[in-house]
Amino acid sequence: MDTRDLLSDAAGRIGEGVHRLLDGVDRATLTFRPDDDANSIAWLVWHLTRGQDAQIADVYSREQVWTAEGWVDRFGLPFSPGATGYGQSADEVAAVDVSAELLAGYYDATQRVTIAQIDATSDADLDRIVDTRWNPPVTLGARLISIIDDDVKHLGQAEYVKGLAHRARA
């Protein structure tokens, strides 16, 4: 197994988790928030996908799937096209009220691009500096791991919220 295989496998597991999370979930569960300042499943999945999309686009110098494939229009959210969820208010979190199918579709489109980019990446490419704002500067390999790590955390948060939503209805 080479590095690309490991990265693709890790990214693929996130997609499997997103689909398990969204399978058969209703709108009330998607938008459930344990309290007024908490994140919903819909917002968490949208945010993890937006973060992946924006960062993959940045490090591979390509347009984001969000705008290139018209997802921004399909979602119709009251945010700027560049919004990824970082630093959003509780009211903005509540505004992400979309279907599981829409969330899964956007995730799948972003995942296709992510996997294609990873598959085209050589081991030597992983040492390329992609962000000089940090000390030490961030390599492509470190950024890809960071994207995967962030997505895993948000997926786990969404799974927890789903459990809370089911308990609240029991």
Results as ranks from 00 to 15, higher is better:
R128G: 00
G24P: 10
T110N: 12
E69W: 13
V96A: 03
R169M: 08
M1I: 07
I56M: 15
G76R: 06
P78H: 06
A83V: 13
R27W: 11
D131Q: 00
T132C: 02
R13M: 11
L144S: 00
T121N: 05
A116M: 10
H19M: 12
G15P: 04
S122Y: 05
S61R: 13
F32R: 00
Q88K: 10
A95P: 06
L103A: 03
A10L: 15
L140P: 00
V45M: 05
T110C: 15
F32D: 00
Y60E: 02
A116N: 15
R4Q: 15
Y60I: 04
D37Q: 15
D108Y: 04
S61F: 08
V152L: 11
Y86L: 14
A11V: 08
T67C: 05
Q88N: 07
P34W: 04
V130M: 00
R112E: 14
G87V: 11
G163I: 03
H47N: 07
G17V: 01
I115C: 05
A104N: 08
A142L: 06
V98H: 00
H154N: 09
G82D: 12
D36Q: 13
L77F: 05
V59Y: 02
A10M: 14
R167S: 08
T139G: 01
G105C: 08
D5R: 13
I145A: 12
Q117T: 13
V138D: 01
D123S: 11
D127V: 01
Y106A: 02
L22H: 11
G15D: 03
R50M: 06
D53L: 10
W71E: 04
H47T: 07
H19K: 14
K153T: 13
